[in-house]
Write a protein that binds this DNA or RNA. Structure first.
Lengths: 344, 344
DNA sequence: TAGAAAGGTGTTAGCGCTAACATGATAGCG
DNA sequence: CGCTATCATGTTAGCGCTAACACCTTTCTA
């Protein structure tokens, strides 16, 4: 008796939530049967299961998922790591991931690196500590320590956004080719003196890859491929500023290839204020295929990348793996589409 | 010996990650000291701590946060529940929350209800099962069961977006008053025949509150306050369609008060295509204060709500509570600002 | 009709960590 | 010098759940 009292004083939570054991007692079964009623219904007799569910309802049982994860050494978490939440591009990928994973009962753990590889490493460590079922990260670049950590991890790792030699699974598009594609289009339209305008290209290295594709095409055709780098990653205001800078420094430019649609749309809107005719005075092209570009007059020429679909496909590949089904291709090119508007 | 063998065969994970116990052995201390080296450094001698950290580094220790949470009955999770990820408004709030919580070492668990209160209840149950430290949810409306669950929960609950009688903490703005504010502005500018255009007002009930404020002002001034409801929540295309519908059904309208900036901007861009003069032929007003509206010509009259700041303030209030500091006001009006452009 | 297979449930022993209490050493004090 | 206070560390006992195995019953098979 005194022994029992001692034990009781050492309990952490006096009046905590009802536990599975209490539910089991209320239903006249063992704890493991109650556990199975939730996690493996097909292994429990139907009547027994109904009795257990009724007991759960009655006592107000809320499963302790932390305890379940510890015991089973897995959680229904999917770690998702992106470099930024400012950029609508990542939001759309997240949306695709979230919809697909949530429908299958997985919970997303969202991490934001702010374009810092060290921060990514730290997030990966934290997420591994949560026994995630899989990890999805934007991009193929990681710190060596982070790469090592992920390589020795035995669960699916998915890298999205770009295409290349990845750790495990990969769904993305070829940014260099996208840059080439737009450059070819500009040449076809007769624009020879095109300026590429990007921002923070050290962090937004996918935009840099697009520039490299652009430069390759222009230089192969015997033209220069000047580059202007802005300070702000992607906003309408920055795009307006970009147009001003091109007008000031490249007075003979006949086209601007912007790193993204936010910049391009900002420039297009600004061109109205400056009284410039697009594309006659200057052509404007973007990247992303945002709806805004299609609502402007003239419509923005851009490249649409299926971002939500990318998230969805990535999630499906990961789920295949989690279901122990064969993953047909570890690397999957999601492609892109040139949308020709009247701005070029 | 045979006993030990039996035990060994019953282990779940043969070659699992190194545990705290192994780190402790490597450093020549007990497990609890190693635990304290991470979670309560001030309670461990500096040299001992350095030795432990070095051992962790050496063996590649990754803390098992699931086990820690189970033992301590708390996690560093903050549940965040929003009705949609399509709407940039929620994204911005999430950004504010995320930045503030992440800086303090909390991890956000993001849930999307798709405007379904039953789904919200389910998410709340799941999140409580993860021993979250606090819960942030968008809006004051919940299912009765969900409300009951949250009321008996003993951790901070924060409701954001709107202002009113909440469960616990509340940071938001008065949408009815915002609707009144814009309506007064329209009257001041001489617009008497104003149409309110919203979308899915059963789900976007905050927009409905703005309409009610709008109607109150117009009716008190002796004018009608017609309402048109669109099918799509907020997109440029839907806004263009909204303008068409107003032109078709209210030929004498002199102003359109849109439920949000996406719709309003869509209409403004469409007005160019229709050859309408804004505001002379028709005035256009929005809500949200998106950057896009300020880049259009004419600039969009709208109401700016400080959404990222709302997220940040909400997070700070919750952190105060978690730090056991006094929360000065449980309800906090974040306010709004009328941005007058040339579109009215 | 014996034996195997399948179905349904229970017992036991942890998962890896930390709360609570315990202990020993050192410092501070009159 | 004995007393308490503080610091640094250790021992013990779970947190609530599920994997692994065990066992009994019922059904199927040859």
């Amino acid at each position: 008796m005194s022994n029992r009292d001692t034990q009781r004083t050492r309990r952490r939570r006096g009046a905590s939530q009802p536990t599975l054991r209490e539910v089991a007692e209320a239903a006249g079964v063992s704890a493991i049967t109650a556990s199975r009623a939730l996690n493996a219904p097909e292994r429990v007799n139907e009547d027994t299961r109904a009795r257990i569910l009724e007991a759960m309802e009655r006592v107000g049982y809320v499963p302790n998922l932390v305890a379940g994860s510890l015991a089973s050494a897995r959680s229904r978490f999917i770690a998702v790591i992106v470099p930024s939440l400012e950029n609508s591009v990542f939001i759309e990928v997240i949306r695709g991931l979230q919809a697909t994973f949530e429908a299958r009962g997985y919970q997303i753990l969202l991490g934001n690196t702010d374009y810092d590889l060290e921060r990514e490493h730290q997030l990966v460590r934290t997420f591994l500590g949560w026994s995630c079922s899989a990890l999805v990260t934007a991009g193929l670049r990681h710190s060596p320590a982070c790469r090592a950590l992920l390589e020795q991890w035995d669960k699916p790792v998915m890298e999205v956004m770009e295409l290349g030699d990845g750790l495990d699974l990969n769904v993305g598009l070829d940014h260099r080719e996208a840059g080439r594609c737009m450059a070819r289009h500009l040449l076809e339209r007769g624009h020879r003196r095109s300026v590429f305008v990007g921002a923070c290209l050290d962090r937004d290295y996918r935009a840099l890859m697009r520039y490299e594709g652009h430069r390759e095409v222009f230089e192969n055709a015997g033209h220069a491929a000047p580059l202007i780098e802005l300070e702000e990653l992607g906003s309408l205001e920055a795009g307006a500023g970009g147009l001003d800078r091109v007008m000031a420094s490249h007075r003979d430019a006949d086209a601007i290839h912007f790193a993204n649609d936010d910049l391009a749309a900002g420039a297009l809107l600004h061109s109205v204020r400056l009284g410039l005719q697009v594309p006659d005075d200057i052509a404007i092209a973007g990247f992303n295929g945002l709806p805004l570009g299609q609502q402007l007059t003239p419509r923005l020429t851009t490249i649409r990348s299926p971002r939500e679909a990318m998230g969805r496909q990535a999630a499906e590949q990961v789920l295949r793996r989690l279901d122990d089904r064969r993953v047909t291709r570890r690397r999957r090119d999601i492609g892109f589409e040139l949308l020709v508007g009247e701005s070029t």
